[in-house]
Amino acid sequence: MELRQIRAFVVVADEASFTRAAARLNVVQSAVSATVRNLERELGAQLLERTTHHVRLTPAGRLFLPEARRTLAAAQEARHVLEQLRGGLRGEVRLGLIQTPQNVVVHPAALIAAFRDGHPGVTVSVRTGGSVQHAEDLRRGRLDIAFVVLPPEATAGLDLYVLRSEKMQLLCHADHPLSGRDHVELAELVAEPFVETPASWGNRLATDAAFARAGLSRRIAYEIGDVASFVSLVKYRLGVAIAPMSFVEREEEIRGIPLGADAPALALALAVPEDHPLSAPATALLQVAREMHESGS
């Protein structure tokens, strides 16, 4: 049994596809298939069920997968130990980024800079996108760590280190009829035109879930994948929004009105996969983030 065989099996399991696994491993699909077949032959057990359209783990495959992950992690850690003896930590961390307010203690750019200063031999590869996609990439092993903003119901399979938690509020222009209220209920907002984020953003997930729990629907007039533009549409009276006040920086024309009992909450967090052991570089990056958060700088 070879490490390349184990890695091929894990990647196929993560991707649920030999084609996507081959692209990720940068080899031809036939090579991945042959490698996994050889591993199954050596183990004397079928690990994957192959059909025309699907690849699924067999019962044996489900038992073997966590052990395979641990084996790969142990081999990687052994390499990192030797690399440190030769002159410092080396390797790569795949980090997922989202649009983040400038005033957070652990801002992505500041984190990468602080980490680079302490670990110049590690490459930090960044990928931008929505929290939902980052969460799926973490679960499938495509990312090591990611900044996410997700409601609790969307965090299955992840471990979170929370950087900041906020109650979401109604954002409206200062001259909106609701702007003088001390709070507002979701039922009062069903006729309002909404400015919203894309479906892959945690903000959208939380708001949709809050309206669904209340048995209410609303009209989304604008869907914007950029925080500055999102805020501008509210500023220019084109709609209202539900979001954390951290979305709004120095916008005197916009008011934040607390929501009632149905107010959703959002946490900005660093997420790691629950069942994928972290590499030494990823562990070091998470430690730098913790130290920055605890020191408040």
Rank of each mutant, 00 (worst) to 15 (best):
R20C: 04
L286C: 10
L170F: 01
G129I: 12
D14R: 07
V10N: 11
E249K: 06
D144H: 13
E196A: 15
P151E: 08
V124K: 10
Q169I: 01
Y161D: 12
I242V: 12
L150W: 05
G256P: 05
M168E: 13
I220R: 13
H119F: 15
A280E: 15
M1P: 14
V27A: 14
E67R: 14
A280Q: 12
Q133K: 13
V27P: 06
V36Y: 05
P151Y: 07
P152V: 09
L270M: 12
A241P: 05
L160Q: 09
F194D: 04
V231T: 07
A269N: 12
Q133C: 10
H80M: 00
P59Q: 03
G157H: 08
A114T: 11
L143I: 11
A241G: 06
S297L: 14
T58R: 04
R24T: 13
R37G: 03
T123I: 14
L216V: 07
G202C: 02
L178F: 13
E40Y: 11
I257K: 01
A199T: 07
R24D: 13
S33H: 13
E67T: 07
S30C: 00
Q102V: 14
P193A: 03
D226A: 09
E2Q: 15
L43D: 09
V124E: 08
G296E: 09
R41C: 05
F9L: 10
E166V: 01
V36E: 06
L48E: 02
R181Y: 04
V81S: 03
I112G: 09
T52S: 09
I112F: 12
G130L: 11
W201C: 05
A261H: 08
E196W: 04
A271R: 09
G256H: 04
P151Q: 11
A74F: 00
R290C: 10
A68T: 02
S232Q: 13
A109W: 14
S295P: 00
I220T: 15
S33C: 04
V36I: 14
E249V: 10
A265G: 06
P258F: 02
T197Y: 08
T71S: 12
G202D: 02
E15H: 06
L160E: 10
A243G: 06
A73Y: 06
A174G: 00
T71A: 15
T51F: 02
L216D: 05
R213Y: 00
A31Q: 13
L270G: 06
E185L: 10
L170V: 00
N103V: 09
V55H: 02
I98G: 05
E40D: 04
A73H: 05
C172P: 01
L170P: 00
G239S: 08
L189H: 06
I6W: 14
T58M: 01
I98C: 06
L259E: 00
R213K: 08
F18R: 01
Q46T: 14
N103M: 08
L150I: 10
A16E: 15
V248S: 05
A21R: 04
R24Y: 10
M245K: 04
I112V: 15
T155N: 08
V195E: 04
F64S: 03
L3G: 05
R218V: 03
L43R: 15
F211S: 01
G180S: 02
D159L: 11
T58H: 07
E291S: 12
P244N: 05
A75F: 02
K235Q: 12
A75Y: 06
A156K: 12
Y161V: 10
L85C: 01
L89M: 09
R219G: 02
I6N: 09
R70Y: 01
T19Q: 07
L57A: 08
